Amino acid sequence: MQPTNSAFTGNQATDALTEDKVSEIKLALRKEPEVQQLAHSIDERDQIQILEFGKEPAVQISRFSDQILNNMRTTKVEDSGELLKQLGRIMDKFDKKDFEQTSKGFFGKLFKKSEKMMEKLFGKYQSMGQEIDKVYVEISKYQTEMVDSTTMLDEMYEQNYQYYLTLEKYAVAGQVKSDDLKQNMLPQLESKALAGDQLAGMQLDTLRNAIELLDQRVYDLEMAKMVALQTAPQIRLLQRGNTKLIGKINSAFVTTIPIFKNGLIQAVAAKRQKLVADSMSELDRRTNEMLVRNAQNISQQSVDIARLAGAPSIKIETIEESWNIIMKGMQETKSIEEENKRLRAEGTKKLEQLQNNFKQMKLKG
């Protein structure tokens, strides 16, 4: 018979399984008709039935713990470290000096080389933008995987809670049956046996053995239940670590990288316009030496063009700030990942120890 968990669903499944809550659940379950029916289904004369009482949910929780351990071992948190290193190498190519103002004499000396210099600068940041795009795609995939992992962990937490409730029902039902036997049948048989009833004496020995087996079975179910109880906080720790990573990845990378990349594109375009405008101004100045009168109007127009073209839509400070956010995000994400690794290692070790203890108890039982 597989019990349902209709009495404890919804928001209760998301609450922490504290000691007080466990006591409340036990008291409430003793009054449930379903638990009473489970207790009545136990035949104290059938030792095999007693030994296998609650076997199915106990096996399920053991397999479920193995599933959580496997999830810990196959996590891709470590894979993000290489992404951060790759992004760090790309970001190191950014140089604020590439976009600073240059002295006027510079353009006079390098008038013929300005176009080549601009192409070199454009090529550098175009290549940098393409590399950032590749990392951005991988980071976005990683964020999606982390969101999926967090959703899966939430489902696992709910499933773990349902396993716990099922085990609790079997354990409570076994205890109810044991209490009933001790309070009702045992005293009656003891009285008859003392009165010299030999049949009652034989039945008394059988009943005492059944009660002992039932109490041992309840203890085994309690141990299996503790595995589920202690697995719950481990799942929440994994979720909390994932949530921190998702938030950091979104704020430092997914949101900021496109801003930084667009800023680079506009800054390079503004730099090119400035070089062209300054080159035009220099050419006009030399022409004015030969054509003084006509050069006055041309010079004024050139200055206006230079001023108009020299005002970028995005300030270099904005790009620098985006760069700082990304670099800081990489450092903070690395710290979070190190903490997650530590928590996963501790959780894995703890669950493996619980599994070993549970299996040892099963072997002894």
Rank of each mutant, 00 (worst) to 15 (best):
N5T: 15
Q12N: 07
A16K: 08
A16G: 03
S23M: 01
E24G: 04
E24T: 10
L29F: 01
E32L: 01
P33T: 08
P33Y: 08
V35C: 00
Q36R: 13
E44M: 10
I48V: 06
I50T: 12
I50M: 08
G54D: 13
G54Q: 08
G54S: 10
P57F: 04
Q60M: 12
I61V: 06
D66G: 02
Q67F: 09
I68P: 00
M72W: 12
S80W: 08
L83H: 07
L84K: 15
K85N: 14
Q86R: 08
G88C: 08
M91Y: 09
M91D: 03
D95E: 07
D95K: 11
E100R: 04
T102I: 11
S103V: 03
G108E: 12
K113N: 09
E115K: 14
K116Y: 15
K120Q: 11
G123N: 10
K124V: 06
G129Q: 11
G129M: 03
Q130R: 13
V137H: 02
Q143L: 04
Q143T: 08
E145R: 05
D148A: 10
E158D: 12
T166D: 13
T166P: 11
L167M: 00
G174R: 01
G174K: 04
G174T: 06
G174S: 05
G174E: 02
K177H: 13
S178E: 10
D179M: 05
Q183E: 04
L189S: 08
A193Y: 11
G196R: 00
D197R: 04
Q198N: 02
Q198V: 11
L199Q: 03
G201M: 09
G201F: 08
M202H: 15
M202R: 07
L204F: 09
L207I: 14
A210D: 00
D215I: 02
Q216P: 00
R217I: 02
R217W: 14
D220S: 13
L221T: 09
L221R: 15
L221M: 13
A224V: 12
A224I: 01
K225L: 13
L229S: 05
T231P: 04
A232M: 10
Q234C: 04
R236K: 06
Q239N: 06
N242H: 10
G247N: 05
S251I: 12
F253C: 14
F253S: 13
T255V: 10
I257F: 00
I257C: 04
P258H: 03
I259M: 12
F260C: 03
F260V: 09
K261T: 15
I265T: 02
A269M: 06
A270I: 03
Q273S: 14
V276K: 09
E282S: 01
N288Q: 14
L291G: 05
N294G: 00
Q296C: 12
I298Q: 10
S299N: 10
S302F: 11
V303P: 01
V303Q: 05
I305H: 02
A306C: 04
L308M: 14
G310D: 06
A311T: 14
I319F: 05
S322F: 11
W323I: 00
G329N: 05
Q331D: 11
T333L: 07
S335T: 06
E337T: 15
E337R: 15
E337V: 15
E339M: 09
K341R: 08
R344Y: 09
L351D: 07
Q353V: 05
L354G: 00
